[in-house]
């Protein structure tokens, strides 16, 4: 089915694509929302509302790419609202115990020698062109796997900061953690993600321990 074809085979003026394309988009949006909210019901509601809102304004979009950008913008706003309300979202305290904290510290320490300098195996390497990754389906699968590999609390703070554009002060207040703890968590998230992405995409095989 081509872009804009309706289910009955006629050419539709809609920039939203065929019903199959909308189904695929809904599935991707749901995965994204669930990653942020960790609640299937909340994620489904947010996606449903975002799509309904976008469909009501469908004529404003020149093409599917513009529509996607816009619908993801609506979805992010809905997720931000839900996290701010915080009524049904999974509380941070339940995401991670003290043991995970300690495991995280150990993982962080393993990246550096006792002197505080990079271990030879974990020292950042030159990355092949990151812009090439943007349009590569396999890259995004690796990206999601690397995100998923982070401890839940670390991932939550990172996603609030980098995907949902929360200021650090608001993240600390929302989650009841100190500013310095927030910075430690973000540092850990970035170190973990960069090592994972480097080992599995940007410079694979260059360091044996990743």
């Amino acid at each position: 089915m081509r872009l804009g074809d309706a289910e009955d085979g006629t050419r539709a003026a809609s920039p939203l694509g065929s019903s199959a394309q909308i189904t695929a988009l809904r599935r991707d949006m749901l995965r994204f929302a669930q990653l942020q909210l960790r609640d299937r019901g909340l994620a489904e509601d947010a996606v449903q509302e975002a799509i309904a809102s976008a469909l009501a304004n469908a004529e404003r979009f020149a093409g599917q790419a513009a529509f996607k950008t816009w619908v993801f913008g609506i979805l992010r706003n809905k997720i931000v609202d839900l996290l701010r309300q915080g009524t049904r979202t999974v509380p941070l305290s339940s995401l991670m115990g003290d043991q995970d904290e300690e495991a995280g510290d150990t993982a962080l320490d393993a990246l550096f020698k006792a002197s505080g300098h990079w271990n030879p195996q974990t020292r950042p390497k030159t990355w092949r062109d990151p812009d090439d990754a943007l349009s590569n389906k396999q890259f995004w699968a690796v990206f999601e796997a690397c995100l998923d590999h982070l401890p839940a609390k670390v991932a939550r703070v990172f996603m609030m900061r980098e995907m949902l554009d929360f200021e650090t002060a608001e993240i600390c207040a929302q989650l009841g953690i100190t500013t310095s703890n927030c910075h430690v968590i973000l540092h850990r998230a970035r170190l973990g993600l960069r090592a994972c992405l480097e080992g599995h995409w940007f410079a694979p095989g260059e360091h044996p321990t990743c």
Partner: peptide, 11 residues
């Protein structure tokens, strides 16, 4: 990613 680039790549 948060802007949905991963869905366009899939297409």
């Amino acid at each position: 990613y948060a802007a949905g680039a991963f869905t366009e790549a899939a297409d």
